[in-house]
Design a protein around this nucleic acid. Structure first.
Lengths: 359, 359
DNA sequence: GTGAAAGCGCTAACAT
DNA sequence: ATGTTAGCGCTTTCAC
């Protein structure tokens, strides 16, 4: 069908429909062999610059681009990168891992790769199969973001595909990974509260078994330690639940049920902090301007309202970008590496943390 | 290197590194020809169920999966879908199009496709090239999300690739597309304000040349019309600027400079509404509880704070999902279609809209 | 119902 | 410096 000056066809294409110049046609037009065309296009120095120029010119004129499939079949490289994410991370309203993914996708394009996202079941079982792109050998490398089931990793390892972890890596062994400096983040957040005069500071965790969260707790403790403040276990709430808004609300309930004294709270991520603020708004309205609250992640700073949330900023996009750089290096063997890149975090002071009001 | 029980290799792979059973090996093990294996695997009815079962069993035992590249070379289908987004849409902090993309990505996986994202320059020029996946014939279909440069569309059309538009489509001609019911949304938002007793309702636009925004304005006008309220052009702000938070703030300045009477504002998207609220907080604190404000999009409802924003909800994920369904139908020729799917929107009442206080 | 063989579009030995 | 040729791993006629 033709509409205006733009034409779109919605039927299975027959071969002839594509603008599909082949290497053979270029070879004929240039009066050389297909091998010569291939060498010329791949910048092989065995070719004279005269013929190379001739070939390149004709290739351009004929609008020739080598078929990825054909090339992949012989070179065993696809130009694709797989990105693995568990479903719970993918579905979170808090766009933490998906932002990382977008960073990776963007950087991949800059380095001439494309990224396939594959969402996997967090309860990956021995009956489950690896992603199709692994089984069909349709990727050159893999990025593993967030906590990935060990069973999956075991299976994957048999395929010996260059891999980079983001924000998590298996306990044992050394793998290239891009991680956040969670300890430093926990420290910065807590010290910020201390500097404001707070001495009784609660920690709200959740999913404490995740190294990111437990490291934030370590940072919290070390800040208290540095400033000679006692660690009060009653003020440390780790409920092993998902770190989301609802559980932040719940943490508010639990904290105030304790009848402990506290004037500040460090929440291990922003969504929990927002849940806690919700709790205050609904149940302890007067506390909103008294209690200091700091989160972690700096989610969508642009669209948050009052009171704006102090937090620890994590550059999610950059995490994704760096992972791609690491991975592409590994794939192209420019640099054998299994290093970990630790990303610094940044303290963002906003309205939700304020100087302690003396009682 | 071996660490624990997991092994990762970070060097360019030699062929032998893959678990790469080929069709030939399966054929030998099953004592049949490769043609038979292929037919059996592709469920061709020319094969006896006895041999098919035998082949399938051996294929499973040998952990055989056909190579995507080899198959693609002959079938001319890749199992990949391209997703086009302009850079400004990709980079927006408001994750509107990126959410659509995630929806598409997810649905594609369900239908056994993978999605390649390609971010393009909104100022696509005649020197620019189409995405690599088009030139190298590495996709079976394309999704075009948001406003795409016409030059790009013209070039693309030559390739005759099945395509689906999301949230936008060229003026002329008929293309399959998945769009939001913007008129209805504008109507619902405005009528909601009218029902609360407001009669002087401002419209804050921006990017009015975008059909989505202009349709919201049409809905706004028709609601006023239905309720016999005069349309006051002085209260319609269309500044041709990007619909972001900063311009929402600016709109606040402009509105209050006008010295017109108004008790409610319909902002053509949520970020503008948030910018307007920022303006009030900083300059018209007293108005925050007086002025009713409604947005459009329902961005990240989960993480927004007070006053919570009334809005028109758009299911972004579903938009992406439906586009994939349409596209895959087109690719697999199950259904020749060039229909447009218009997505209904939903009025979400929250704190930012309230009954009109009489002066 | 099954096999032989050609060929998809490239790259890479090996010749020349 | 360039051409010849053999595959890469599949699918698909066309025989039998």
């Amino acid at each position: 069908m033709t509409d205006g000056n733009i034409l779109f066809i919605f039927k299975r294409l027959t071969n002839g429909d594509y603008l599909k110049t082949t290497i053979k046609e270029v070879a004929e037009a240039a009066q050389v062999s297909t091998a010569t065309v291939s060498l010329a296009l791949n910048n092989n120095n065995r070719i004279s610059s005269d013929t190379q120029n001739k070939v390149l010119k004709i290739a351009k004129k004929l609008n020739y681009y080598p078929s990825r499939q054909a090339r992949a079949l012989v070179t065993k490289t696809t130009g694709n990168i797989g990105f693995i994410l568990t479903q719970n991370h993918f579905l979170k309203t808090e766009p933490f891992y998906t932002k990382i993914f977008l960073g990776s996708t963007f950087q991949a394009q800059n380095q001439d790769y494309y990224v396939f996202l594959n969402v996997i079941d967090p309860d990956f079982s021995s009956e489950d199969q690896l992603p199709r792109f692994v089984l069909e050998r349709n990727i050159d490398g893999i990025i593993l973001a967030g906590k990935i089931p060990e069973l999956f990793l075991n299976l994957l390892s048999k395929h010996k595909i260059p891999s980079v972890f983001i924000d998590y890596f298996p306990n044992e062994g050394k793998y290239p990974a891009v991680v956040i400096d969670n300890i430093q983040g926990g420290f910065l957040a807590t010290e910020h509260l201390i500097n404001l005069g707070h001495t009784d500071i609660a920690f709200v965790g959740g999913e404490i078994e995740h190294p990111s969260i437990s490291n934030r707790l370590i940072g919290y403790k070390s800040a208290l330690d540095k400033h000679n403040l006692a660690i009060n276990d009653n003020l440390i709430l780790v409920n092993h639940l998902e770190t989301n808004k609802a559980n932040g609300y719940l943490a508010g309930e639990k904290l105030f049920a304790k009848e402990e004294n506290f004037s500040a709270v460090f929440c291990s991520n922003d969504t929990m902090a927002l849940g806690l603020i919700d709790y205050l708004r609904e149940n302890k309205q007067s506390m909103i301007n008294e209690l200091s609250i700091i989160g972690f992640d700096d989610i969508e700073g642009d669209i948050l309202n009052s009171p704006s949330l102090s937090t620890i900023r994590v550059n999610k996009i950059e995490l994704g970008v760096e992972a791609i750089k690491l991975l592409v290096n590994a794939i192209e063997d420019k640099e054998y590496t299994n290093k970990k890149i630790v990303f610094p975090v940044e303290l963002i002071k906003r309205e939700s943390t304020k100087i302690k009001i003396n009682p």
